[in-house]
Amino acid sequence: MARRPLAAALVMAAGALVLTGCIPEPPAIPQSPVQPADPQPADPAQPSESADAPDSGAPSGEANVGLGEMVTVDDEAGDSWSFAVTGIEENPPLESGDSAPGTRFVAVLLDGERVEGGVGFIQLFDIWVVGSDGGEYYWADTVEATAEEDVYFVGDSFAGARALIQLPEGVDPELVVARSAYGHPQVEDVVVDVR
């Protein structure tokens, strides 16, 4: 019982000494200058990204891989995959979930095969569509819905896997982007024109 009042008295006495200046405060920790995350100036013409979207700069806007062209991406962290974006499917068959009012689902169709490592495809790549309105629409925003042959469930190799993307009505997919989640920005985005 006597310890509690004694501890309170010690805390109050120490506080009084600090307030009166008898005990100096520790020196401030020097702050390093803030480094910009992206050395390029912001482009006001770029559309805003989803709140859940990966943030690290948009792709150049030009395709660097052809539709159906197999590419191998090494994330420089021990995992690599060979894969191809083979097309876009309108109104893909769903196992669960519905699109929000005023939107529709499309599926990015993918073929792929693990080359090295043990991490799953969808954990290693952020996938999104650049729409005809300039907006970016992410696979990660549709996790509440599941397509048949959903890319989330693929193994070491797959053909015709579907990555669901929710687009507003009237917006068409133009580019598919696959970004190495661990390799970016050193590893170049895979950008495919699907128009």
Rank of each mutant, 00 (worst) to 15 (best):
V108D: 08
A42G: 11
P39F: 02
D126T: 12
V85D: 05
E90T: 12
Q186A: 14
G61R: 00
S80P: 01
L124N: 14
V73S: 11
L17E: 09
S180F: 10
F121G: 02
N91H: 08
G87A: 02
L6W: 13
F158W: 09
W139I: 03
L164R: 00
A140V: 14
P41C: 03
V34T: 01
L94E: 03
G131S: 10
L110R: 07
P92E: 00
P44A: 06
G66Y: 08
T103A: 13
V190S: 04
G160K: 00
V18F: 15
A2F: 10
G170I: 06
P47K: 09
D55C: 13
F153G: 01
E149G: 09
E188D: 12
V194A: 09
P59L: 02
P168R: 07
S99I: 03
L110I: 14
S157D: 11
D141M: 10
A147R: 04
A14N: 10
Y137P: 05
A13G: 15
T86I: 13
S180A: 13
R162S: 01
D133G: 02
A13Y: 09
P5H: 07
A107I: 06
A84E: 08
S180K: 03
P54T: 11
F121K: 02
F153Q: 10
A51W: 09
Q123H: 14
A58W: 12
